[in-house]
């Protein structure tokens, strides 16, 4: 008479599989919920993300028609070649949700980070 293998709920491969899935789930949750501290300036040219820089590092980003300056946690547009210079006149921004728009050059500089609002009207 053949001995039946004893019934076991988990076998080694099952345990491995469950572990792999748990790790995947854990990583997903981590990346979805991890707090992204600190604000960033996102520069969009023609609707495409051109650069994303942290507000904690002072820097200047030279674009074709204007320059974006990050200093002391704030951002402004300088040296714009557009006729109306509305982007320069907007001055410095530093709060999440604020943005500078240069319509003639199709450039948007946006402060992103944690905020209580999802859009500003």
């Amino acid at each position: 008479m053949k001995l039946r293998r004893p019934f076991r709920l988990f076998r080694i491969w099952d345990v491995l599989l469950i572990l792999v899935l748990l790790v995947l789930v854990g990583l997903t949750i981590y990346f979805a919920l991890a707090p992204r501290d600190g604000a960033f300036a996102e520069i969009y040219v023609d609707g495409k993300l051109y650069k994303r820089v942290s507000l904690s590092n002072d820097t200047t980003i030279q674009l074709e028609h204007l320059t974006v300056e990050v200093a002391n946690g704030k951002v402004r547009v300088i040296d714009a070649d557009c006729p109306d210079k509305i982007c320069e006149k907007r001055g410095t921004i530093g709060k999440v949700g604020q943005s500078v728009v240069c319509l003639p050059n199709r450039v948007v500089v946006k402060i992103t980070g944690k905020s209580e609002v999802e859009a500003i009207s």
Binding site: K95, V96, G97, S115, E116, E118, A119, I120, S121
Partner: peptide, 25 residues
């Protein structure tokens, strides 16, 4: 351009400060 439509769920919306402000809304 400041006009916002909400589809499928509600959204929290800030209103631009009409005068100089330290806040974004």
């Amino acid at each position: 351009g400041g006009t916002i439509a909400a589809v499928g769920r509600s959204y929290e919306i800030g209103v631009t400060p009409p005068r100089d402000s330290d806040e974004s809304y």
